[in-house]
Design a protein around this nucleic acid. Structure first.
Length: 112
DNA sequence: CCCTTGACTATCT
DNA sequence: GAGATAGCCAAGG
C-alpha cells in the first residue's frame, strides 16, 4: 500500500458507502466529492482494495452506462444488484427511478 | 526514466 | 447518438 492509497482509499470508501440505495454516482463524482478532482480512474482501484463490502455497484460511468463489458460476469452482477434496488435499464443506460433533486430543483423548486 | 495500463471524461466530428 | 481523440494520473514493468 502506498501512502497515497492510504488516504485516497479511505475518502473514496466514505463517499461510496454514502450513496443511497437506488441511486448511482459516477466515478468522477465520487472522486470530486472525495476531494480528488480528475482522479476518476483511481476510484475503481480504491473500491477493489476495500476489505469490507462496499456498494461498488452504485458507481457507474458519467454517461450512465456500466464500466464493465456488457455480458461479462461483473456486468451481470452489477446490473442484477442495481435492478434489485429498483434501478431500471434503458438499453445499456441505467435509469434511476427516484432521482436525487438537482441543485436547480432545490433552488427553484420542482415546478419551475 | 520511459512506456503501458486501466471498473474514466469531456469534447469534438 | 456513436466513434475518435486527447487529457487525465497512480502503478508496475
Amino acid at each position: 500500500m502506498t501512502n497515497f492509497q492510504i488516504k485516497f482509499d479511505r475518502l473514496v470508501w466514505k463517499v461510496v458507502v454514502g450513496i443511497p440505495p437506488g441511486q448511482v454516482m459516477s466515478y468522477g463524482e465520487v472522486a470530486n466529492i472525495a476531494g480528488f478532482p480528475r482522479y476518476s480512474r483511481m476510484v475503481s482501484g480504491a473500491m477493489g482494495r476495500s476489505l469490507q463490502p462496499l456498494p461498488w455497484f452504485r458507481v457507474v460511468r458519467s454517461n450512465r452506462t456500466l464500466a464493465f463489458e456488457p455480458g461479462s460476469k461483473s456486468y451481470r452482477e452489477q446490473s442484477r444488484l442495481l435492478k434489485q434496488e429498483g434501478v431500471r435499464f434503458e438499453g445499456l443506460k441505467v435509469i434511476v427511478v427516484n432521482p436525487t433533486k438537482t441543485l436547480d430543483e432545490m433552488l427553484w423548486g420542482p415546478k419551475n
